[in-house]
């Protein structure tokens, strides 16, 4: 949807609409075609309410960014939605199926596959074995059928072909037989994403896919995420780096202190006072320095200079 980039003119008086949204754009607004709908999800750690989301919908077939300052509850929300953590209250459905209280492996089987902030590559398995583990519905994974190779040989070959295609796409084919532990941090991120794709997910949830990845690989990761959307996969990702979010997301959801404080297309949501407040007012998170539009901001200037230096540097390469 290229028209997402042209945002409706924002005037404080008029209710803002958007092609993805049913009704007006506001925190917790209903989407035209949601893939995930969550209601009243709360998660309490002692006295701290880490997540307290009244209503949240994630649009289908789009790249949605979940942003927010440190401690906003983004990863906790991720863990809750994917069954890795249990909420105190709340229900949510994925593709019309309720997933509340469903264990993590069943969530993954239903087509909602996640990656982790700290990459979880399986170090002492080869890259190819990592990939094959991602395939679903394998007959050879049953205890008794695993003993009889003819039962699963054909399926294993098909999965290997698919794994090789994905490895080639993520430029990991040269590493096929290496132990995953020998990959660099960025390559592990790629492997984790490729592995998640082995199951042909409807929705892929990436927890900080760009964290700790060098700029060159970041570009390639961004490209892969855009390709996912082109292939019809919905993407939800958590990210700190605002440049990334601006470049690739169709929709941005902002969390702060466990709540959804704003959402909207990337250009407008960055100007939302609630977002600026969440980032700068309460936490002084310098990452969002370029959100300040009025006048040169020292942080912004510094960041911009750094980014230019970075770009120049990577172009030289």
């Amino acid at each position: 949807m290229s028209n997402l980039d042209k945002n409706p003119v924002q005037s404080p008086a008029a209710a803002v609409t958007h092609p993805l949204v049913k009704g007006t754009v506001e925190p917790g607004c209903a989407k035209v075609d949601p893939i995930v709908i969550a209601d009243h999800v709360t998660r309490q750690f002692g006295g701290l309410k880490a997540v307290d989301v009244d209503h949240l919908e994630i649009p289908r077939g789009q790249i949605t960014a979940l942003i927010g300052p440190n401690g906003a509850g983004k990863t906790t929300m991720f863990n809750l939605l994917t069954g890795f953590d249990k909420p105190n209250t709340g229900t949510w459905e994925f593709d019309g199926k309720s997933l509340a209280g469903v264990p993590a492996f069943k969530v993954a089987r239903s087509g909602m596959v996640r990656t982790f902030q700290l990459t979880k590559s399986l170090g002492r398995l080869s890259v190819l074995q990592n990939m094959l583990l991602g395939a679903t519905g394998q007959r050879g994974e049953g205890l008794f059928s695993s003993l009889v190779k003819p039962l699963w040989r054909r399926q294993e070959e098909e999965n290997t072909v698919r794994a090789d295609e994905l490895l080639a796409r993520f430029k990991l084919d040269a590493k096929r037989e290496d132990y995953a532990a020998s990959l660099s941090g960025g390559q592990r991120k790629l492997l984790e994403m490729a592995r998640a794709l082995m199951s042909k997910p409807e929705l892929i949830m990436l927890d900080e896919p760009m964290a700790g990845v060098n700029p060159a690989l970041t570009q390639s990761l961004l490209g892969h995420i855009k390709n996912l959307k082109a292939d019809g996969t919905s993407v939800l990702f958590v990210e700190h780096d605002m440049h990334m979010v601006m470049h690739i997301s169709d929709w941005v959801i902002v969390m702060a202190e466990g709540r959804v404080v704003a959402e909207g297309p990337p250009e407008t949501v960055m100007k939302d006072p609630a977002v600026i407040d969440a980032y700068l007012g309460a936490h002084h998170d310098t990452d969002l320095g370029d959100l300040m539009d009025d006048g040169p901001n020292p942080v912004e200037v510094a960041l911009e200079a750094e980014r230019k230096a970075h770009d120049a540097h990577s172009e030289e390469k």
Binding site: T82, L133, A196
Partner: peptide
């Protein structure tokens, strides 16, 4: 026989990181 099969691959994956295996839809 078990360890050359996909079953063996799953348990070896669990040895490495059971959350990763869980996130791939296996009943760890």
């Amino acid at each position: 026989l078990l360890m050359r099969s996909p079953w063996g691959r799953v348990v070896k994956g669990i040895r490495e990181d059971e959350d990763a295996v869980r996130s791939l839809g296996k009943n760890v």
